[in-house]
Design a protein around this nucleic acid. Structure first.
Length: 434
RNA sequence: GCCCCCAUCGACUAGUGGCCCAGGUCGCCACCCUUUCAAGGUGGUAGCGCGGGUUCGAAUCCCGCUGGGGGCACCA
């Protein structure tokens, strides 16, 4: 075997091969993935991929009463969309309940645990300290007297999270537990449990939580919080991944835009910030715009079409494709497309806006004769019109824009007119005068 | 209340004793470009929470304070 060969040749090299990294993400199936948990999952994934290790998905469904039917599928769908692929099949904590109970019985037999009103409790040491070197926080020590005897198995026979989770980490050969910092105070208990079964605790890395810009834990009132919400708002996966990676981590002081490959290449767990990070929606918007603009035009159109389909729009695909280049430079989220370019696909409303009728009627007669009805010809004709009326371009074009698009803000006027077509353009100009 | 942790511009961060009267990015402001809005270009705004030490020298090390967070379940 290669490992044995390497071992003989170079003991250090063999060591490096043997301790290949294995991490896990362990969500409970209680609903959609919260963006904070996704960020934790991303750090796990980046670390695993950077180290050439494995990233496992374990569903912690011990508490069946809180389980949401769709959640397991939704979690996987969210991870897949973001590009966080896991290794091997996902596992369920519930499948190991018998193993847990057996360990509990053994611990009782060894005098390391005891029965208490039908439940089984683990006997924590009551002197000294339990500590570990946290990859992101450094040394943490807890006085053992603070550690209560945790319940291993409830009186109804169901193992608890604080028992099942560390046991599974041992059984799965998890080398690094990268999780939210709300687990910091569980860690000494889990370390003692793991040692009690004769295993070596993994390396721990507790990543800070994600706040809203107001310094409070990120929640609904800040805006989107689940991956699905970000997706349906029109953020694209690479942008969200890039943004999330930079939430509590930075490779240096300069770099901001990084592809998935680059993130994997540069990710360093020990550089993760120990303090909480605020989620800046405006920066995400900017970054999403950067990614959207960088897409090749055909890919952009493809993404847009895909997005509109998911959102239930049945707009003409050919027209969407033609409209795509007009908006690519202008919108930051695909979700802005319907409001920005919807005038091409549906009727507009002018809400009784008063527009200069002279400009409109002149434009109408000019556009009637433009041949062919293309952006450059339209532009030439309208510029000539503006000059003839002695109007500044913006003063001449703005009423036309509003009449035709229903908005003061739109894609380029001439291209918009071309896509709209002569007939509909004339209709709208005429309608705006009455 | 008890235990654990955290602290650089409004936000994300770089910075690990001299390269920092603190750098990058978002935001914000101004100007340029311009058919609107964006994009792009140029410039600008703004920060080491406070108080003590240590040191020739501290954003960087130590102590205290203040502020913030997490945990203290037969939830995960």
């Amino acid at each position: 075997r290669p490992v044995q060969l390497a071992e003989r040749q170079n003991p250090h090299r063999a060591y490096a091969i043997r301790v290949s990294v294995r991490v896990r993400m362990a969500p409970s199936p209680t609903g959609m993935l919260h963006i904070g948990n996704v960020r934790t999952a991303l750090f796990n994934w980046l670390y695993a991929r950077h180290e050439g290790g494995e990233f496992k998905l374990r569903i912690e469904n011990t508490d069946t009463s809180r389980e949401v039917a769709e959640a397991v599928d939704q979690i996987q769908e969210s991870l897949r969309w973001l590009g966080l692929d896991w290794d091997g099949p996902h596992t369920f904590q519930l499948d190991r309940m018998d193993d847990c109970r057996e360990v509990a019985r053994k611990l009782v037999a060894e005098g390391k645990a005891y029965e208490d009103e039908g439940a089984i409790r683990f006997k924590m040491p009551d002197e000294g300290t339990t500590g570990w070197d946290d990859v992101v926080r450094g040394r943490i020590d807890f006085p053992n007297e603070q550690l209560e005897d945790v319940v291993l198995v409830r009186s109804d026979g169901r193992p608890t999270y604080n028992f099942a989770s560390p046991m599974e980490d041992v059984w799965d050969g998890i080398t690094h537990v990268i999780r939210g910092d709300d687990h910091v105070s569980n860690t000494p208990k889990q370390i003692n449990l793991i040692r009690a079964v004769g295993a070596e605790p993994p390396i721990y890395a507790h990543v800070p939580s994600v706040f809203g810009t107001d310094g409070k834990k990120l929640s609904k009132r800040h805006g989107a919080v689940t991956v699905e919400e970000f997706r349906s708002a029109g953020y694209i996966a690479p942008a969200l991944m890039n943004f999330l990676a930079l939430l509590g981590w930075a490779p240096d002081g300069e770099t901001t835009i990084m592809s998935g490959d680059e993130l994997v290449e540069r990710f360093d767990l020990s550089r993760v910030q120990p303090s909480p990070a605020a989620f800046d929606f405006e920066k995400l918007d900017w970054m999403n715009g950067v990614y959207l603009r960088a897409l090749p035009p055909d890919e952009y159109a493809h993404e847009l079409l895909l997005y509109l389909g998911e959102q239930g729009y049945d707009w003409d695909a050919e027209l969407v494709r033609k409209a795509a280049p007009l908006v690519q430079e202008k919108i930051e989220r695909l979700g802005d497309f319907p409001a920005f370019a919807g005038f091409l696909f549906q009727d507009i409303s002018l809400d009784g806006q008063q527009l200069d009728p002279k400009v409109l009627s002149e434009a109408e007669s000019v556009l009637r004769d433009v041949e062919p009805f293309t952006a450059d010809r339209i532009e030439a004709a309208l510029r000539e019109l503006a000059e003839r009326l002695e109007l500044k371009p913006r003063d001449a074009f703005q009423p036309i824009r509003i009449a035709v698009t229903g908005s003061k803000v739109s894609p380029g006027l001439f291209e918009s007119l071309e896509l709209l077509g002569r007939e509909r353009a004339l209709e709208r100009l005429s309608a705006a005068r009455s």
